[in-house]
Design a protein around this nucleic acid. Sequence first.
DNA 1: ATTTATCTTGCAAATTATTTCAAATTATGT
DNA 2: ACATAATTTGAAATAATTTGCAAGATAAAT
Lengths: 259, 259
Amino acid sequence: MSKMTHIRKLLTPEREEIILAELGGEARTITELSQKLGVSEATVRRDLLSLEDQGKVKRVHGGAIKLKFPEHEPVFEEKESIRPSEKQKIAKLALGMISDKDTIYLDGGSTVLELAKLLKERKGLTVVTNSLMAAAELMESGHNLIIVGGKFRPLSRTLVGPLTSKIINSLNIKKAFLGTIGFTVEGGISTTDSDEAYTKELVMQRAEKAILLADSSKLGKKSFAASGSISDIDVVITDPGVSPALVKDLRKMGIEVVV
Amino acid sequence: MSKMTHIRKLLTPEREEIILAELGGEARTITELSQKLGVSEATVRRDLLSLEDQGKVKRVHGGAIKLKFPEHEPVFEEKESIRPSEKQKIAKLALGMISDKDTIYLDGGSTVLELAKLLKERKGLTVVTNSLMAAAELMESGHNLIIVGGKFRPLSRTLVGPLTSKIINSLNIKKAFLGTIGFTVEGGISTTDSDEAYTKELVMQRAEKAILLADSSKLGKKSFAASGSISDIDVVITDPGVSPALVKDLRKMGIEVVV
DNA sequence: ATTTATCTTGCAAATTATTTCAAATTATGT
DNA sequence: ACATAATTTGAAATAATTTGCAAGATAAAT
């Protein structure tokens, strides 16, 4: 294992302090910060990237501004979860699979939610979802929004269970974008809640194409309730942290893997 | 891969701040803003376009004005009630009709939303709703929450249309609490949107008891799309501003009227 | 209807971001 | 302390975004 992905673990607390002080209210450009800190612009960019992942700063073209309050409260378990920027990259790849006027399904989960945020770049979509967070994000988007009814599950803020079949089975979905807690080659996707698993299974069977959005921390993990089998999945989008062996296995099974 | 679309993601916070400050009350022309900012008029136009997308500004011929209603935020935002106190009183009366472990339906509208806020005083309810505002209110309530799926209607933030029948028709609802835009003795309740009207009708037919929550400003008014007939309604809860003649008429028809 | 001003669109130049790589630095094990 | 692995840094190459200009389209004004 020689090739390690270049993930920045931490920046010096000293520099973090200076940056946050500089950003105290006002926006600062990369150049300003670079001079103030006496380091290269490349380093400043990396520092800001790190601070953005921590939710302390928002990067904008040309510089950054400080955020007043942490973006995402951990509504649901994110202990094993990966950096937000990785999720955004996964979401961006997924966005590439969506064209104007598509009919898509959005599942719950933070990665899929990132995708929802990007959907303003498309026009005239029909979006079906069981996620109230995604729905909130798309409320004012102008897209045609259909919400799958069902039992509300507070932890994930999704609609789940048998009732969801009433509407899902009456719709024709082109592409379904799913999140998951765990994913293995043998068992397919799995979740902590069986109602949640049921609804995922339903969607996968109903959609022309089932696309799994899962950062590498999810791959190889198994959770309580399985959803269908691995053959229900057509595409897996993940980040470079995934083990090459797993990728090979999946491709052998005819599953497209995007990193 | 390389797409040439010119979608503006962000403008520098610096410029945004200046623009919004300049627009502090008065309208400004593109030329004025361009000089103030030291950038070309083309850039100002693009900035304003971006701000308009964010709902912060309204572009007019020759310039722009600031909007007072900044905008957005997920499910927790609420528009100003017209007569909050009346609505709260009505909601309180409605609460009196609900006992622990009931199965109830909540419609959209601000009065019904007030009722939703009061539901923490009950235990173990099963709440069915087509209102995302009500759903947001009840998310953490501990009640069993079921959301009727369907087409999302942004204006009322409710789920409406034929798809709602899939779930509504499979549930048994004890008491349904409905809002309305207009209500007359001859026509029953009426709304501005026919999908919305359709769903209300469905609910009234399905519920054992249909309870209308309408402040007196709604009574006697007629809107575009009618929902069922007046005989579908069992109870009307309103405020003392209602005309005695109307009350008498309603009671004659076997409808209970609560003020 | 004609004139004038404002708006939109396409494009090339400038600016800013991201990626990649080698050198410098820091950490780790012996 | 030494050698080795891992991480961070800066620079250069590549990609993406933003900007200003100019020509054609649209709206207001006379």
